[in-house]
Structures are given as C-alpha cells and as structure tokens.
Design a protein around this nucleic acid. Sequence first.
DNA 1: GCTTACGATCTGCTGCTGCGTACGGTATGT
DNA 2: ACATACCGTACGCAGCAGCAGATCGTAAGC
Lengths: 140, 140
Amino acid sequence: MADDRPDLAAMVARLGRTLVAAERPILAAHDVSMWGYVVLTALADEPMRTQAALARAIGADKTRIIADLDELQERGLIEREPDPADRRVRLLRLTPAGRRVHTAVRRAIRAEEERLLADLPAADRRVFLRVLQRLDQGPL
Amino acid sequence: MADDRPDLAAMVARLGRTLVAAERPILAAHDVSMWGYVVLTALADEPMRTQAALARAIGADKTRIIADLDELQERGLIEREPDPADRRVRLLRLTPAGRRVHTAVRRAIRAEEERLLADLPAADRRVFLRVLQRLDQGPL
DNA sequence: GCTTACGATCTGCTGCTGCGTACGGTATGT
DNA sequence: ACATACCGTACGCAGCAGCAGATCGTAAGC
C-alpha cells in the first residue's frame, strides 16, 4: 500500500514549528514578540471586552499575557481602558498605530508564505489552504 | 480580497497541537510515551548506528533521549548493543516486540486520523496529504 | 450593609527543554 | 606510546510553559 508516510500529527507539528521559526526573524525585524503579534491579530479581528476573553481566544494563560499587554500599551499599539460601565474590566482595542504595525507584519508574513508556497501548482495550493482552514476550525 | 484567513503558521501550528493532543490518549493506552513512539518510529524505518544520529534524526537533544532509550530497552522494545567494530557506539534496532508495539500504535493512530479526515472529499484529501508531505520534507 | 462572585494582577511552584560542561571509555593517526 | 577526537552518560543551569493561590478593586443579589 502507498500509505508509507509519516504520521499526520508528526508532519503537521514539524511543519508548524518550521513555519513559526520562519516568522521569528520577521517579527524581530518589526520589533514585535510572537505573543504580541498574536494579540494584535486577535484585536485586529475584533476588540475584546476583557483580558480573560482575549486569553481564551488566543489560547494563552490569562496571567501570561499581562506583560505583553503592558508592553503593547506602553508602545501605544493597544488601548486598555477601564470600562465605564464595569470598572473591573479593561476594554481592549488596537490604536491606529497598532493597526499599522499589525498590517505591516502581516504583509511581511504573507510575503514569506508566498515564497514558501511558490513551487506549488495553483490548484494544489488552493485545495491545501482550503482543507487546512477547514481542519483548523474543524470538527476537532 | 478573499485572503481573509489566519496566518499559515498559526493554522498549521494550532492544528499540529490538536493532532498531537489527539495522539496522547492513544499512546497512553499502549503505555508508550511520545518520545518513545518517536524513537520506535525512527528505528522502524531503519536501525541506527549511534544514539547521536538517532537524536539528530528525530530532532531531539542527544542527552534527552537517554532515559527514553533506557526505558524502551528495559521493556525489551529495542536492542542497544555495543558495536563490536567500535565499542563506543551502540547499535540501535527494534526487537520483534518493539516492532509489534510500533505497528499496533501506528495502526491506532492511523485509525484516529481516518476519523478526523473522514469528512473530506477523497480528492481534496489526496491533494492535502501530498502537499503536506512535500512541504514537510520540502525546501524549508 | 453584607455576602458572594468576578476581573486583573502578582507570586510561587512545577515540569519540560535546550544548552553547556565534564568525565570515562574507546578509536585513530602519527 | 601519545595526542586527539568522538561516543554515551550524567549533571547543573536558565528559560518558558501551565497551574494554583492570594490580593485588591468592583459588581450584583439579598
């Protein structure tokens, strides 16, 4: 049988590490940490009402992201304003500068992905990305 | 534009974590650790002449795998015999029992993968696996 | 007013990893 | 024989992850 391939999890996990490693220099060039970029990405999609919700959304510990939020806020990339309606919670959203940084980093990352996927036939690539998206949000 | 998807690295890394997590109970059921299974898999492909080569092959620290090798050897799943030609090195290979365990675990993992991929159209699935394999060994 | 619950923060603990170092046993070249 | 290099092993250290507990401010129900 032609089923002579590495395990799915092994391939995907290894590829994931490689791709993340490829992102590292890009993030460094923009002076953004990995978690910082993850936060910017989450907030770019939609502002968050609590830090706990943000932590859940990005799959991080709620205590882990505090330092990252501090730094992003200090650099003026996010706003962290107490909710006037419930002063326990901090409303989180990108500043215009934060959105600019996120867009720039994202553009650079997409360019790198482009390079990595360049050799693939267009049809294969479409299918691959579609399946990947589906599995990513998928039934798991 | 329709390029509104998460970053490639984010999707692949997250999917990888999910898949690895799905393997964990299977490995536990067969009483094999993650690294143990990785070692068995590597040795199932081909015996190794040195532990350093094995470590390199599976991307682990050479000091990290020693305890795993000890355990696998003690359980009679691998042989670790000094090379008569160079008694510094330990020739590593699966025992028949080790091969049986590896085959059983692998079969269970494949069954689980089958379940996860069940919803995909056959054509998509073929392409996905092919592209994945290519990227995995690929130009990266 | 009092109790209970919740958000953000800080601290400490634990387990895993990567990395460097050191040491003994062994080959190899001169 | 001797110097050098390599293998396997053990040990310690630093960094980072998740997790639990304690604190403080605040909100909501009774």
